[in-house]
Design a protein around this nucleic acid. Structure first.
Length: 461
RNA sequence: UCCCGGGUAGCUCAGCCGGCAGAGCAGGUGGCUGUUAACCACCCUGUCGGGGGUUCGAAUCCCUCCCCGGGAGCCA
């Protein structure tokens, strides 16, 4: 099929040349003697205006060109006398691949709520909102690789199925081939030694532990892949299946980790502001939850850094404003994080050195013995977008922390082993990809930044 | 999982201290010589989320279940 994409046509319009375009009808407007079609092919935010005069051979085809129909149009490009677009295509011939019955096609020539569109997950990518979101998602995914590859990080593929059940990152989905009706039993309990892997296995909740051993060989590595949490979370910022990016650096401490996180985030903001301008402009205009200027600004401005202890002191000054208590040793609540990002610092904040007892066992114990070298990157509206730490590389300290957390060595023996052979300081963090997309696009609900959201009671598409 | 708010036409919603089920948009038909979610006129559209109860009578009151949204927790 000899066709041009709308993106190509509009980026270097060559007037008078014969062109073929294929796409889906967004809207059709008819006047006496002339008709207009807004055509989208997904290649860019803009639609191409097709002009069909009554004399055109394409005119009789209009009957099948309802909103949603897939068509091919042949004609030539020219400057548009109308307002709203610089160029348009006068159509001489048109072919309808597949019509869409206007009575039953759910997408109308009008605005729909995001809640309704979620119920037609297979059709919602055809709207300009989801088109914008998914193109930005692609842009960000590419930028993630550009950033790390440019710095010599190795993309490593950590497993999706794992036997580690004690990473302290929430409930897991089980993976099994055992007969659910009649599983093999040993002394009354299900005998997982008869299961596919000969042991209980799960969908991964994080690639970090594997990324750690790869970084202890390849130096700087990163993962970028799907992650699963079986938590019964019903919020606008949680998914049961989401994509996570987890860099891990050998010979690095928390300072290096923070510098990487900040450079990374700012690179992504700059890249999307440059390359996703049309999409961002649409979202800015349509929803008013983001601004291109704001995203560009994030790319330039350094993040505020504050220790947990200082953050608690800062929050203490406004204690009366909170529902939950602020006290050293307690985790920060959503309202506290929001106060820091939205009211005190008005932008992204990195909070470091949390109390040992509220953080994971693998985070490196600080000199004071009561805090760990952890960092959370908090952003307005979303809250925690990245979480990371310097890892505990000292064998005795790690073992003691695992005992305190009641984690048995068993399935994690290999993890502990890394501290026996050539252990070295290392650090990394995790970035929830959908939260990033959510933050950049301003979509209020995380279910609107992934094509097929997985959440409790939600697996239809 | 907990706390709030919702579920009425294809979509967005009004009606809710009980008494004939409504509007706008979409869709259909016709009109209009360049439209921009076109415009104008007319027409069509219902399991009032499901089940049970109170009542002469329930979209409306009560119970219960399901689903959706917002917030919280868990976290990325």
């Amino acid at each position: 099929m000899n066709r041009l994409k709308i993106r190509e046509i509009l980026s270097r319009p060559s007037q008078g040349m014969p062109v073929d375009v294929c796409g889906w009808v967004r809207s059709r407007r008819e006047s006496k003697g002339i008709a207009f079609i807004a055509l989208s092919d997904g290649s860019c935010q803009d639609t191409l205006q097709l002009v069909i005069p009554e004399g055109s051979a394409a005119f009789p085809r209009l009957r099948g060109c309802n909103t949603g129909a897939a068509v091919r149009a042949s004609g030539y490009l020219r400057e548009s006398p109308g307002k709203g677009q610089s160029f348009e295509m006068e159509v001489s011939a048109m072919e309808v691949f597949g019509d869409a019955d206007p009575v039953t096609y759910p997408l109308q020539k009008k605005g729909h709520t995001l809640e309704f569109l979620r119920e037609i997950g297979h059709l919602r990518p055809r709207t300009n909102t989801y088109g914008a979101v998914f193109r930005i998602r692609n842009l960000l995914a590419r930028a993630v690789h550009e950033f790390f590859q440019g710095r010599g990080f190795v993309w490593v593929h950590t497993p999706i199925i794992t036997a580690s059940d004690c990473e302290g990152a929430g409930d897991l989905f089980s993976v099994t081939t055992l007969d659910h009706e009649n599983p093999p039993r040993h002394e009354g309990r299900i005998d997982f030694s008869k299961d596919f892997f000969g042991a209980r296995s799960y969908l991964t909740v994080s690639g970090q532990l594997e990324a750690e051993f790869l970084s202890m060989a390849l130096g700087d590595v990163y993962t970028f892949g799907p992650t699963f949490r079986a938590e019964n979370s019903n919020t606008s910022r949680h998914l049961a299946e989401f994509w996570m990016i987890e860099p891990e650096m050998a010979f690095a401490d928390l300072q290096d980790d923070m510098a990487l996180a900040e450079d990374f985030f700012r690179f992504l903001c700059r890249t999307v502001a440059e390359q996703g301008e049309h999409e961002l402009a649409f979202l800015e205009k349509q929803y008013k939850t983001i601004s291109i200027a704001g995203i560009r600004g994030l790319g330039d401005k350094p993040f505020v850094r504050i220790t947990y202890t200082d953050a608690v002191r800062e929050l203490g000054k406004a204690a009366g404003k909170f529902e939950f208590p602020v006290e050293w040793g307690l985790d920060l609540q959503s309202e506290h994080e929001r106060y820091l990002t939205d009211t005190v610092f008005c932008g992204p904040v990195i909070v470091t050195d949390y109390p040992r007892d509220i953080k994971a066992f693998y985070m490196r114990l600080n000199e004071d013995g009561r805090t760990v070298a952890a960092m959370d990157v908090l952003v307005p509206r979303i809250g925690e977008i990245m979480g990371g730490s310097q890892r505990e590389e000292r064998l005795e300290v790690l073992e003691s922390r695992m005992r305190a957390a009641a984690i048995s060595g068993g399935s994690l023996e290999w993890y502990v082993d890394l501290r026996r052979f050539g252990s070295a300081p290392h650090a990394g963090f995790g970035l929830g990809f959908e939260r990033l997309v959510q933050y950049i696009t301003g979509m209020p609900n995380i279910r609107d930044v992934i094509p097929c959201p997985r959440a409790p009671l939600s697996i239809r598409f």
